[in-house]
Design a binder for these strands. Structure first.
Lengths: 186, 186
DNA sequence: GTTAGCATGTAAGATGTTACATGATTGC
DNA sequence: GCAATCATGTAACATCTTACATGCTAAC
């Protein structure tokens, strides 16, 4: 996965160092994906060997900077990954990591992918709602309140992502996703 | 992490096989945590060596079943893990995996932990909202619509979990978390 | 001058997954 | 009789984190 996120980063911006790439990832998808130098640098070397990126070392003062650039072959491989369906059982984070780079895709294409994903989410949510109904009738409910609460967590999270899909697949204004009530500083 | 989830499972139910444990995990927190036999069986052996579980092999017909039971030492270690604060930068999934077992904790204790976690989420959400405002004024917004959409994804997800915390920490009825609109079958 | 941030990298180990190997039992 | 599920386990590999090692540069 990280190899494609690195390629996507270089697809967007040229002449980045490993350090820059980490910052770009952290600032962009840091809320659901973490990458450490211990994984970035070895992968950059692998991508070099595979010919998906090139690298020119530059000296800034005494410090060497290795600036990476994606190749045509690298672009091809990256777009293939973007277009590819997710493996079964993938997390939302994997999906969102792709969405982060969807600006590189034709618009209809991106919307279709989100619609397809939304369908899966709706089906899954309905499944969980059915499950929750089975618990509702049990008498000793308070003995597994927290256990049950995680099921509702799943349902809420799914619903919020379904709502998100509804807005994004139509390219509506994103601001409407946030109820602008009270964001008082605490 | 998995070692504690296994201990928690045996805390709840005795005389489970490795196979049973996997099913319990899958049905309970399968929506955000996966465990394979390739990790469960080796960990069960480790827990045996550490004295946190015991095991009696039983023959059902010709088939051997290894049924595991948690020890007092195992209970102690499990509760310690439950009480412990999460390491920084942990995912929501790690937190929820603990909440799933919170029925084993005194009630006030559990509520406090959820309140503490909620505070972090609110602070983090406000940070992301601030970030999103910086993007709003840019002119070429449509060039990074999807990039920006993942930021809003983060905000929505956080808000939905904050709402969840509000209900659960007060032990309110969980059903109110789901808007009972239209769950038509498709 | 000293702290924070820039910059690259490695080695050890944690923590899994996937695929394989094997076979019993239950329900249709 | 056949498929699905129950049941245990290993070996190879994948993937990443943590801690270490090193040193430059900008800002205060």
């Amino acid at each position: 996965m990280l190899e494609f996120i690195i390629l996507g980063t270089l697809f967007k911006c040229s002449d980045l160092t490993g350090y820059d790439i980490r910052k770009y990832i952290e600032e962009g998808i840091g809320m659901f994906y973490k990458a450490s130098y211990g994984s970035i640098y070895p992968i950059l070397n692998k991508l070099l060997q595979q010919g998906y990126v090139t690298c020119k070392g530059e000296l800034e003062g005494k410090r060497e900077k290795k600036k990476y650039v994606i190749t045509d072959e690298g672009r091809k491989v990256f777009i293939e990954w973007l277009e590819e369906d997710l493996p079964k059982g993938s997390s939302m984070e994997s999906f969102m990591a792709k969405v982060f780079f969807f600006d590189a895709l034709p618009d209809k294409n991106a919307a279709d992918k989100i619609t397809a994903y939304e369908l899966k989410l709706v089906a899954y949510k309905n499944e969980l709602v059915e499950q929750s109904k089975q618990y509702e009738t049990l008498k000793n409910k308070k003995d597994f309140y927290y256990k049950l609460s995680t099921l509702y967590f799943g349902i809420c999270k799914l619903q919020s992502i379904i709502d998100w899909c509804d807005v994004v697949k139509q390219r509506k204004e994103l601001e409407q996703l946030v109820q602008q009530e009270d964001i008082e500083e605490e």
